[in-house]
Amino acid sequence: MSRHTRGSLRPAATEFVVVAAVLVVLYLWQRLLRLASSVAFGSLPVAGGVSGALFLAGVVAIIGGYARVRHVDCGLRPPTAGDLPWIGVAAGSPLGLVTLTALVSRATGVRYGSLTGTAVAADPPLVPVVTVAGLGLLVGIPSLVVVCQVLVQGSFARVVDGDAVVVPTTAVTGFVTVSDTGGLAAIPGLGRLGGVVVFAVLLGGAALANERIDPHRRGLRVLAYLPVAALVALAVGSGVAGLGSVAAGLFAATQFVTLGVAAYAYARTGSLLVPAFAYAALLSANRVVVVAFEAGAGL
């Protein structure tokens, strides 16, 4: 007989543990590919394009296989005419917030490039800049869509009904994809990945312990989640403490809002192309601000 109780968090905890395991596999794939690329191509100009294509192919294959095994909907359908308002919201929200952040950063003397973690030489050649940016978008956008919507949102949709799935999706993707060096990255760095694994262990252990504690001993049931709450408070506190400026706060908020809008738009439309517009708008707008207004490329 199942020991699940009404309101049990075990199903959600199980999904998070599985997501964490897949993220570990993706991280190992990324590290292996970087090592192989450095050996095979060195500093050849084709290295970035080839490694980017192989990285994306691996991410799609790994998460596609995961979705197939666990019967997760991949959203491989085109948007309909009724989805056009959601496309507008998905693309418009990041563009508006990036514009606001750029204006605040200029007014407060904060370089926008310091927020995105990118630097471009003054008056750079237009073709190489556009080429590099284009390759980054071709790899970054589908990678984010597959990780955020198929892996994370698709997994939580198995146990969370309706629009409520947007909340855990935004929280998890916010921690996983918001890079320490600025911008969004589909695969978390080692530090964040370690945090994800530790959280998965604590959450899974708390969910199991909670089911084995007498339902009438509510104090002990709450204490079972105390380590989980402490880790969340530590992550949030360290993130807020590291902002350093109003512009940095707006930049972080822009990323979280974009992730939330993408998740909500996907929940409403069921098409992966709709959240792709949100990531495309954010990544391209960030690049345009840095290149056109700080490096003076005249874009």
Rank of each mutant, 00 (worst) to 15 (best):
Val172Pro: 00
Phe251Val: 08
Val165Asn: 05
Ala229Ile: 00
Ala133Ile: 06
Glu211Thr: 12
Tyr279Cys: 02
Ser155Asn: 03
Ala295Tyr: 03
Gly113Val: 02
Ile141Thr: 09
Leu138Val: 03
Val146Asn: 15
Ser179Ile: 07
Leu35Trp: 12
Trp86Leu: 15
Gly260Asn: 02
Phe199Gly: 01
Thr181Ser: 14
Arg6Thr: 13
Phe156Tyr: 03
Val178Leu: 12
Thr108Pro: 04
Gly194Phe: 13
Leu208Ser: 13
Ser2Ile: 13
Phe256Gln: 12
Gly195Lys: 01
Val159Ala: 08
Thr5Ala: 12
Tyr279Thr: 03
Val167Ser: 07
Leu144Asn: 10
Leu193Ile: 13
Ala185Asn: 10
Val290Gln: 13
Ala61His: 06
Thr177Asn: 10
Val261Gln: 04
Gly52Pro: 07
Ala295Asp: 07
Val147His: 08
Ala13Pro: 00
Ala200Asn: 00
Ala267Leu: 05
Pro85Asp: 08
Gly136Gln: 05
Val172Asn: 00
Ala164Asp: 08
Ala247Arg: 00
Phe251Trp: 15
Ala53His: 05
Leu208Asp: 04
Gly117Tyr: 01
Ala207Leu: 03
Gly154Ile: 03
Ala185Phe: 11
Pro275Trp: 02
Arg218Met: 10
Arg77Lys: 10
Ala281Leu: 01
Val120His: 07
Leu115Val: 05
Val159Gln: 06
Ala61Ile: 06
His216Gln: 14
Ala164Pro: 01
Ala209Lys: 10
Val127His: 14
Leu283Phe: 08
Tyr266Cys: 02
Val145Lys: 03
Gly194Asp: 12
Pro11Gln: 11
Leu223Arg: 13
Ala209Cys: 13
Asn286Val: 01
Gly58Trp: 13
Leu97Ile: 15
Arg68Val: 10
Leu273Gln: 12
Glu211Ile: 06
Phe16Leu: 02
Gly64Arg: 04
Ala107Lys: 13
Val152Asp: 04
Gly42Glu: 14
Ala21Val: 08
Gly49Tyr: 08
Thr99Phe: 08
Gly296Lys: 08
Ser155Cys: 03
Ser43Gly: 15
Arg192Glu: 15
Phe156Trp: 01
Asp73Val: 13
Phe277Lys: 07
Phe16Tyr: 05
Ala253Thr: 11
